[in-house]
Structures are given as C-alpha cells and as structure tokens.
C-alpha cells in the first residue's frame, strides 16, 4: 500500500490534515530527476535566483514542499513548472546540488503526460519548437513563430503576427534570422533516431 499516513500536524486544535506521502513517492518514481527533491533543505535560494520569480505562482522551493505535502493538483497544474527557461541560476546556487532545472522540466513532462495543461501557450510553443528540431535538426525562427502563431487559429494568428512584426524586422536587420528557409542539418535522420529513442525512454519530447 502506498498510502502512508504520517503524524497529524496541528492535532492540538489545528487543521489536523494527514501527511500524505503518496504523491512524493509518485514523483520520485516517475519524474525525471524526481528523487533529487529529497535533498532539498528549503533554504529558498532557488526562489530568489529565478529571473521569472515574479511570474511563477509557486517558487521551486514551494513546488518541492507541495510535493512532500501531497498536493498533487496544485503541483501538476502549476504555471511554475512550465515557466522554467533553463537559465540554471538556481541549479548553480543550490547548496544541496539539487538539479532544480531538470526537476522542473521533469515535472512539466509528467504533468503533460498526465493530461494536465498548466500553460497551453508554453506547451504549444514547445511542440512547434520540438517539431522544428525534429524536422531540421535546428531552429528556423520564422518557421517556429509562424507555426506557433497559427496554432492559435487563423484570425488570432494573423493578429499575433502583426503584433510581432517589428521584432521580426529587427531580427532580420541584425541577421538573427534569415529570409530564406533553413536547410536541414547533415544526416538529420540519425538525429531523429536518437530523439525517438530518447522519447521512448521518457527523456524527451515537447514541453
């Protein structure tokens, strides 16, 4: 039986909620790098190191403590797990060497696999980004953007294109984007094989 009920906190007049470890165990078992959470000592360095701290509903520290508290819904439907941009500030500073970035990505994958869509936008972008990598072995900025915009539907897509027009022109001007389509890398088929294998191992795919 997975359902382990620990001591009841606040039994002296408190809420008296049972401490449920089943979700923590689910994470340790199924989430890539999930077990590393055990090392967390709740210092809060990750939370304050994150460049997206103002956008996150829960800081990584809070996510870890919610996992330990068995708050499955809150964690898997949180915005935070989809927001990580892999800047690695938290991972570098973590005094317990928790690979925070890997855990956040692991949780995002797991949430999507479980049918949660915490941030449809981010998931859509991830999908198109991944599609590009899979087809070309590299990113074609205008192609990703176009597919992402049109993923919102035709009307909304055109609106988004107009909104981002100046950025596109800027990128062309500074040669961060080509006018002509990008060509696939050499031997892109081998790359696809690798990506397929990774996906089969549960280590890849779009977030």
């Amino acid at each position: 039986m997975d359902q382990v009920v620990g001591p009841k906190y606040g039994s002296r007049g408190g809420a008296g909620k049972a401490y449920n470890q089943s979700f923590a165990r689910e994470v340790y078992r199924n989430v890539d790098s999930g077990e590393e959470i055990k090392m967390c000592m709740q210092c809060g360095v990750c939370a304050a190191s994150c460049p997206l701290k103002e956008k996150m509903d829960f800081s990584p520290r809070k996510i870890f403590t919610l996992i330990r508290a068995g708050q499955r819904e809150k964690v898997l439907s949180s915005q935070a797990i989809m927001l990580c941009t892999s800047c690695y500030s938290c991972k570098v500073r973590c005094p317990r060497k928790v690979p925070v970035v890997d855990v956040m990505h692991g949780l995002a994958h797991y949430a999507l696999r479980q049918g949660y869509k915490p941030r449809a936008e981010t998931a859509l972008f991830g999908q198109k980004f991944w599609g590009n990598i899979y087809r070309l072995g590299r990113i074609d900025e205008k192609d990703v953007a176009l597919r992402y915009f049109l993923g919102h539907g035709l009307g909304q897509g055109i609106k988004l294109m107009m909104e981002n027009k100046n950025m596109g022109i800027g990128m062309l001007w500074y040669k961060r984007m080509k006018i002509l389509p990008e060509r696939p890398i050499k031997n892109v088929k081998s790359l696809r094989k690798m990506l397929d294998k990774a996906k089969a191992m549960g280590k890849g795919g779009a977030v």
Binding site: C43, G44, V45, A48
Partner: peptide, 24 residues
C-alpha cells in the same frame, strides 16, 4: 528571517546593498 539570500547587488549611487531572497 528564515531565508538564504540569493543575491546581493549594490546601489551605485548610495553604495547601499539590496538583498534578495525568499522568506520561507
């Protein structure tokens, strides 16, 4: 305050220091 400070920056004008962290 229960928090490990993540970052200290300096205000160049006053030389005061700005601490960032999360009160856990």
């Amino acid at each position: 305050v229960k928090s490990k400070i993540a970052l200290i920056t300096e205000d160049p004008a006053t030389k005061n220091l700005i601490l960032e962290g999360e009160d856990t």
